[in-house]
């Protein structure tokens, strides 16, 4: 089949972008969407033109690198599917496909379809972990975790950090991403001791990154390739509410690891 692509081209972060029309010829229905772009790119390269820059790595829907909005829908809008898993049989000869980068202030475009999602890393950095040093753990079975809790935590932990939730949200909100990590860790007994400041710190960081606010529409959960549920946002809201009611938590997150503190002391 032959397709007409309207692809967002943008030289770099500071340039103005535009939609360029590119013909995709002899596309086969067995190709994945990204393989279709590969084929288009090979033609562009051989013709001496600039290929379309887009992000992808594992191409099996787990790394979370691929990130374009297809006809306005992040990952193409099929249930539980990332762009790399989307196949061309969903399109027909003569279709026009609009391909754009994620749209959100917190995800500035770097080039063409590639955006900067480092804000997510900084949110994790703000509290998306359990403070346990290597080697200090006791036996894995010493804390039982009910199957239900473990399964729910896993539902949340399935998030691949692709950012489709932000991209689909008309407010550019990252609540689903943050809620997934907060819920994963706050649900488990191992994560409980740091529950309050985790949710406070992560929400604060999310706000600082310039993500929008949630208006409970649900587009995020709809496009989420791992089908992370909206209930996790409710869980985060609840944890946040309880955390701020308690006021300032007495134990602030340790900003210096114990070992590093030790090294401040004279040794000899």
């Amino acid at each position: 089949m032959n397709l007409t692509l309207k692809v967002w081209r943008q030289k770099d972060a500071s340039s103005q972008g535009y939609l360029e029309t590119i013909e995709a010829k002899d596309i086969n229905q067995y190709m994945s969407f990204l393989e279709m772009l590969d084929v288009v790119n090979e033609h562009l390269i051989v013709e001496g033109k600039e290929p379309i820059s887009f992000e992808s790595d594992c191409r099996e829907g787990i790394c979370g690198a691929c990130s374009c909005a297809i006809n306005g829908k992040p990952h193409g809008g099929h249930k539980g599917t990332t762009t790399c898993q989307l196949h061309m049989r969903y399109f027909k000869d003569g279709d026009t496909i609009v391909i754009e980068p994620w749209r959100s202030r917190a995800f500035p475009v770097i080039k063409d379809l590639i955006v900067d999602r480092s804000a997510f890393d900084r949110i994790i950095q703000a509290g998306g972990y359990i403070s346990v040093n290597t080697g200090g753990a006791h036996d894995a079975n010493s804390i039982p975790v009910s199957k239900e809790i473990a399964e729910t935590a896993m539902d949340a932990a399935a998030c691949i950090g692709c950012g489709a939730c932000v991209a689909s949200c008309k407010n550019g909100s990252a609540m689903l991403f943050v809620a997934a990590k907060v819920s994963h860790l706050n649900l488990l007994p191992q994560g409980k001791p740091e529950k309050d400041y985790r949710v406070k710190n992560m929400v604060t960081q999310m706000d600082e990154e310039g993500f929008g606010n949630c208006t409970n529409i649900g587009s995020c959960a709809e496009v989420c390739p791992k089908e992370v549920d909206l209930k996790f946002i409710a869980k985060m809201n609840r944890d946040y509410g309880l955390a701020i009611l308690k006021g300032e938590s007495r134990h602030k997150p340790d900003t210096i690891s114990i070992q590093a503190e030790l090294s401040e002391l004279p040794i000899d």
């Binding site: 829908k73 609009v98 407010n171």
Partner: peptide, 17 residues
């Protein structure tokens, strides 16, 4: 919220769900 997403998608598609 408007500031958080200064540019929308082509053709202003209806937000999913």
């Amino acid at each position: 919220n408007r500031a958080a997403r200064p540019i929308g998608y082509f053709g202003n598609p209806t937000p999913m769900s």
